[in-house]
């Protein structure tokens, strides 16, 4: 693990969140470095997805959601000093299930750029092509860009969703169990893409698949019941964890 001059991308201090009266994240302080793959593992209801959705403020949409503490992106408080649209443009998210819009492949990818004011056809075409190449989908779809995105397979749809995010030129990509509905080959393709993406983007990956975290992660955090139990280099977490609970979880003794 290279330790040379790691810049902090996300700096989370004393984060507490609630849905109504139920606390979902408890006193979380954690840093994510630029251009790393930061993986988060933990059983269901451990606050992993809540954490991700706090980073691009999608939680704002949930009635009854409350948040306390600070989340800094490049040292700017995203809840106090950042407008939400440009935040979400900088911090994209890939959901567990593929979520194509009921549009053509082209229009799905051009959706984000269009919303940000790009209307020139050839510029859009350039963005679509570049995004599809980056997500290794171009060769499979280049002849049918104007057919419905629903005709793609599940794995292709998920890569389409990744291209759609790349098209708005983000800095951070959040992955919320992106391969939970995919077959092993599609999963491998998505993982491969992540390893290349980290040269350009910061990646935060929530996964239920412990092996996946060990395959692609640079650093790994273990969440349990809304609390951070342990965070460190992925290799270290998987070979010599500090905490007994972490060891029990990754060896499959509970969870």
């Amino acid at each position: 693990m290279e330790t040379k001059s790691q810049t902090i991308k996300f700096n989370i201090q004393q984060l507490n969140t609630w849905y109504g009266n139920v606390q979902s994240i408890k006193d979380l302080t954690i840093q994510v470095y630029a251009n790393e793959i930061f993986t988060i593992i933990g059983p269901a209801n451990s606050g992993k997805s809540t954490f991700l959705n706090s980073l691009n403020r999608l939680n704002d949409l949930t009635p009854g959601f409350k948040l306390d503490g600070t989340i800094l992106l490049d040292n700017v408080d995203i809840y106090k000093h950042h407008d939400v649209e440009s935040l979400r443009k900088r911090v994209g998210i890939v959901f567990a299930l593929p979520t194509p819009l009921p549009l053509s492949i082209f229009d799905n990818i051009a959706y984000g750029p269009r919303m940000h004011g790009i209307t020139n056809k050839s510029t859009l075409m350039g963005i679509v092509e570049k995004s599809l190449i980056e997500s290794y989908l171009w060769d499979e779809v280049k002849d049918r860009l104007h057919t419905s995105a629903f005709n793609l397979s599940g794995g292709q749809q998920q890569r389409l969703c990744i291209s759609r995010i790349l098209a708005v030129n983000p800095e951070v990509i959040l992955f919320d169990e992106p391969t939970s509905g995919l077959d092993p080959i599609s999963t491998a393709k998505v993982e491969e893409a992540m390893l290349i993406f980290k040269k350009k983007y910061t990646i935060i990956l929530v996964t239920n698949n412990v092996a996946q975290a060990s395959r692609v992660g640079d650093r790994t955090a273990f969440f349990l019941m809304g609390k951070l139990i342990e965070v460190g280099d992925t290799k270290k977490i998987f070979t010599a964890p500090h905490e007994k609970q972490t060891e029990d979880y990754i060896t499959g003794k509970f969870g």
Partner: peptide, 25 residues
């Protein structure tokens, strides 16, 4: 609901989301 969430997550404003991802459907 996923149409709205996807649109918002790409940085579209609420009105853009309604105009382009909700109303047509």
């Amino acid at each position: 609901q996923s149409f709205r969430i996807v649109s918002l997550s790409l940085g579209a404003s609420k009105w853009q989301t309604i105009r382009h991802s909700v109303l047509p459907h």
